[in-house]
């Protein structure tokens, strides 16, 4: 067991923190998954997707409080994904199997969703914004930084200029979204 990063540290979206978790539990996950009829390549793919899912749930604030270790949480995602993969391949597997009962966690949070058409359009338009806008919106909406923190990190004059800049960026984005 490593000293796990806290949720606050993970919330900054720092990929180092996620890589560290990935490396720390990689072998243990491979060992765990050995009993299923999956190739090592598939298991690694699942494990990567599980760490990515952890990232998603932390960053979109679905995971607000940890009631277990990060490792336990991560493995619950992994088990869910193994189950999905086996079921997809029509391997005989039942949800009753004790391994796949992870009722301590909200399973709907482990499912993958595609972006909606509107979100795909939004992504396209976001890419056309200037660098300063992109950075600012990333800080606020992804990293969850406060206006005060953004002011310091990005060297704005004061909180009001951050606020004004943010509204301008959002206005641009909104206008681009009008067909």
């Amino acid at each position: 067991m490593i000293e796990e990063p806290t949720l606050e540290q993970l919330r900054t979206g720092d990929s180092e923190a996620y890589t560290k978790i990935y490396e720390a539990y990689r072998d243990s996950f491979l060992g765990y998954a050995r009993k299923y009829e999956l190739s090592e390549e598939d298991v690694l793919e699942i494990y990567q997707d599980s760490v990515v899912k952890l990232y998603e749930n932390v960053m979109s604030r679905k995971l607000n409080k940890l009631t277990s270790s990060l490792k336990t949480y991560l493995f619950s995602i992994g088990k869910f994904k193994i189950y999905e993969q086996l079921r997809y391949r029509k391997k005989r597997v039942s949800r009753e199997e004790s391994d796949f009962k992870t009722e301590t966690f909200e399973q709907s949070y482990f499912e993958e969703h595609q972006l909606t058409e509107r979100q795909i359009a939004l992504r396209k338009h976001f890419e056309t914004l200037g660098v300063r806008c992109k950075t600012l919106l990333n800080c606020f909406y992804l990293k969850g930084m406060s206006l005060e923190e953004i002011k310091q990190a990005e060297q704005y004059e004061n909180v009001n200029t951050v606020k004004a800049a943010k509204s301008r960026c959002m206005k641009q984005l909104k206008e681009k979204m009008i067909p």
Partner: peptide, 25 residues
């Protein structure tokens, strides 16, 4: 719109992380 933007940014972050992990691998 703000919530959707958040979802888009998270999804971009996911892609970057995934790519980082496969390269690490």
């Amino acid at each position: 719109l703000e919530k959707e933007l958040q979802a888009v940014l998270v999804s971009k972050g996911k892609n970057d992380l995934k790519s980082r992990l496969s390269h690490l691998e």
